[in-house]
Computed example of a mutant assay.
Amino acid sequence: MTPGVKAVVGLIVGITLARLLWQWVTGTALPWIGDHPWWTGFACLGLVLLTATLLDRPGRGGYQLLYGEDVVVEDTEPDTPTYRMRELAAMTPTAFEEACAELLVRDGFLHTRRVGGAGDLGADVVAWDSDSRKLVLQCKHYARPVGSKEVQTFNGTARPEHKAHHPIMIGLSGFTQPAADFAARHGIVLMGRPELKRWAHGSHLYDVIEAEALE
């Protein structure tokens, strides 16, 4: 019920109840109700609407109070996590890897898990797409652009060690030009700040990196 409708209904109910109270005090309530059926009907309708509104108020948080029981109202909106760049920048490196894993799950990738840590051999997050192609992500939460040396190191393990179909390196602060040139020669997918922003804001990973072209 909108605030305007609530105000009108409340006014009608208030006036009618005041008149009923006055008639009750003077001992002529029942005759007055019989002589004023429209006013009585408005009062009853207003009371029903106000009661329904009050019962619905607990439902603003996802529940409705019906017949004294809490009934769950299911949220029909899908869970689609997104991140702002400033949120990603404020994360720890581990939280950044976990956020990338959550975005993969959002996009429908399978068996997604974060494996980053000591001895990960360059694989921070792994996942598979619906065609059983393996993605290996290395997530660089650097305040500087990722250099060619880091890309070369990732190139040495992504396919030989992890059998990656899509080796993907994510740089929060982008990549140097030598790093980009090396990655282009060796088929390493780089996601710099613009690509990461599109992905974090809701675009599917494959729409961002155009992985279909890497077949």
Rank of each mutant, 00 (worst) to 15 (best):
120 D>W: 12
106 R>G: 09
174 G>V: 04
74 E>L: 11
87 E>S: 13
92 T>W: 08
31 P>R: 03
150 E>V: 09
100 C>G: 15
185 R>T: 09
38 W>T: 10
140 K>W: 08
91 M>Y: 12
197 K>W: 06
85 M>L: 15
27 G>A: 02
159 R>Q: 09
174 G>R: 01
8 V>M: 08
208 V>G: 03
31 P>K: 01
130 S>R: 10
59 G>K: 04
77 E>T: 12
188 I>R: 00
107 D>A: 11
133 R>Q: 07
52 A>I: 09
182 F>V: 00
59 G>V: 01
56 D>E: 15
190 L>Q: 06
96 F>T: 02
8 V>W: 07
48 V>C: 10
118 A>G: 15
174 G>D: 06
68 G>N: 07
206 Y>T: 07
133 R>N: 09
168 I>R: 00
62 G>I: 01
83 Y>P: 02
54 L>N: 08
47 L>A: 13
120 D>Y: 02
83 Y>V: 06
200 A>H: 03
141 H>A: 15
100 C>K: 07
148 S>K: 08
55 L>D: 10
134 K>E: 00
60 R>K: 14
166 H>K: 08
155 N>I: 00
151 V>I: 08
20 L>Y: 09
88 L>C: 03
149 K>P: 00
104 L>T: 04
125 V>N: 03
36 H>M: 05
25 V>E: 14
154 F>N: 05
36 H>N: 15
159 R>H: 03
134 K>I: 00
79 D>W: 09
214 L>W: 10
63 Y>I: 12
172 L>H: 05
123 A>F: 01
43 A>G: 14
130 S>W: 07
102 E>L: 15
34 G>F: 12
82 T>G: 13
106 R>Y: 07
42 F>T: 05
54 L>V: 10
37 P>Y: 02
